[in-house]
């Protein structure tokens, strides 16, 4: 019962963080320069209030939950980092940490989704239900990142811990590591990073 309640409470966390990040951006556009815990608390309450607004007698949080299943632990962690970095202007993740996060989301998603959606007879999603190469790969990637002192490695460790505690509705390890929103965001973020790298190179050649 406590476990079920916890899972239910964890469900709206990611949409709430997304909304909070959006409100922070909006506050920035409106030139609200006062930052800190008080503003964060205020925006957090507004975000929670918006998620509770009903549409056809179901809250927006209920609609998001109906449409999106659950969000992965790395995406949730990255949103927490983004919210805190935006609010307090402190670097919690280095550029290398962010690139590791986007590379994991992009490569993992590209490896999972086309096959899981029916491209061929092999479904890698099956690997998430029992001990499989997925667990070996995850242990290797997490260990490597932790050895390199990447803070993204801590998020992967957190995802594995959450899987062992079954903190999401899903019992599949993939759902703790990846979700489609994280994958698409990662692809876009990597494309932006590549464009940034390519631009100075193009300017130098010109």
């Amino acid at each position: 019962m406590i476990h079920t309640t916890f899972i239910l409470a964890l469900g709206p966390l990611c949409p709430w963080l997304m909304l909070l990040l959006g409100l922070q951006a909006l506050a920035g556009l409106c030139r609200l320069k006062t930052r800190g815990w008080l503003r964060l608390l205020l925006l957090a309450v507004v975000a929670a209030g918006l998620l509770l607004l009903p549409i056809q007698s179901v809250s927006i949080a209920g609609w998001v939950r109906g449409l999106s299943a659950e969000f992965s632990i790395p995406l949730t962690g990255l949103l927490v980092v983004a919210v805190l970095e935006t609010e307090f202007r402190r670097e919690l993740f280095s550029n290398a940490d962010w690139i590791a996060a986007w590379a994991f989301g992009a490569l993992g998603g590209l490896g999972l989704y086309p096959l899981a959606l029916g491209w061929g007879s092999f479904d890698p999603y099956e690997w998430g239900w029992r001990f499989s190469p997925l667990f070996v790969a995850s242990a290797l990637v997490t260990s490597l990142l932790l050895w390199k002192q990447s803070r993204f490695g801590l998020l992967l460790l957190l995802a594995t811990t959450a899987y062992q505690l079954r903190l999401l509705e899903s019992a599949n390890y993939w759902d703790y590591l990846l979700d489609p929103v994280y994958c698409v965001t990662s692809l876009l973020a990597l494309a932006v990073q590549l464009a940034k790298v390519a631009r100075p190179a193009a300017s130098a050649n010109a």
Partner: peptide, 19 residues
Amino acid sequence: RWFLISAAIALNSLPLLRQ
């Protein structure tokens, strides 16, 4: 670092016990 790496390996090995 070694503690965290050990935790990662141990947690990813736990499903072996549930086969």
